[in-house]
């Protein structure tokens, strides 16, 4: 049995991932803002087989509460095997271009707030000398594009941060996984036109669990995004800057 804490537990990908651990009989600690939604997910996971489900209602944007959150998590779970960071916002690129406060908010939610959590949790796991930190980043962080470079730079910074942390925690046997999902049909992307490359959140969830089980470092989900991004990264900047991507 494993103990898993999910930060941003009401997101579609987080909920599907939690279901997989629930059917394995694991213990889950769910953190998100909306207590009513947490309650809905909690009873579902208990029925699906979770050995214990605790819910903690926190607004993760309030970084000053992160230490209190960690204390609550430790109270709920005797030890922490997996920390999954699964929250984020897609933001409005056009608004961000006109308004720095909007940009700051995006960076706060998708990067700085996550780094605050990772700081606390990584120290805890480092002392524990075991465990896994898995955070959802994005292929959008692999290269800046005009359509979403604010979101992209937040996720890009997060990816670099995770990479450094992986290097630091290697000797403490703490596994750090960077998750880069492609197009996923979730409430976050409801306004997008859907096509061939889109997948459902349960596909991503299975990929996340597999990557955690196999102690992967960086995983693109589904796998083909690794190759799509490889091609995108290979385009010379002198050409790339002319493209409308």
């Amino acid at each position: 049995m494993q103990s898993i804490v999910i930060l941003g537990a009401t997101s579609a990908i987080a909920e599907q991932t939690a279901r997989i651990y629930a059917t394995r009989g694991d213990a889950l600690c769910l953190v998100a803002r909306d207590d009513a939604k947490l309650e809905i997910i909690k009873s579902d996971l208990e029925i699906r087989g979770a050995s214990k489900v605790t819910k903690l209602s926190y607004d993760l944007n309030h970084t000053h509460l992160h230490q209190a959150l960690l204390d609550d998590v430790i109270k709920a779970l005797a030890r922490i095997d997996i920390v999954l960071v699964a929250y984020g916002t897609l933001g409005d690129q056009k608004k961000c271009e006109q308004d720095f406060d909007e940009t700051l908010q995006e960076l706060q939610t998708n990067c700085l707030g996550v780094i605050s959590l990772l700081t606390l949790f990584s120290n805890y796991l480092e002392k524990q000398k075991a465990g896994c930190i898995a955070a959802i980043s994005s292929p959008a962080g692999d290269r800046g594009r005009q359509s979403n470079y604010v979101y992209g730079s937040a996720k890009g910074a997060l990816s670099i941060y995770l990479q450094g942390m992986r290097n630091r925690l290697y000797n403490s046997s703490v596994h750090v996984l960077t998750i880069k999902p492609g197009f996923v049909n979730t409430p976050m992307t409801k306004d997008f036109k859907k096509g061939l490359l889109w997948v459902e959140p349960d596909v991503i969830a299975r990929g996340i669990v597999k990557a955690i089980d196999r102690r992967k470092d960086i995983v693109y989900l589904p796998f083909f995004w690794r190759y799509i991004m490889l091609v995108i990264k290979l385009i010379p900047e002198s050409i790339f800057k002319r493209l409308s991507l």
């Binding site: 579609a12 809905i40 997910i41 009873s43 579902d44 029925i47 699906r48």
Partner: peptide, 9 residues
């Protein structure tokens, strides 16, 4: 499709 949670068994 997203309303696919169990409530009580």
């Amino acid at each position: 499709g997203r309303l696919n949670r169990f409530i009580h068994f």
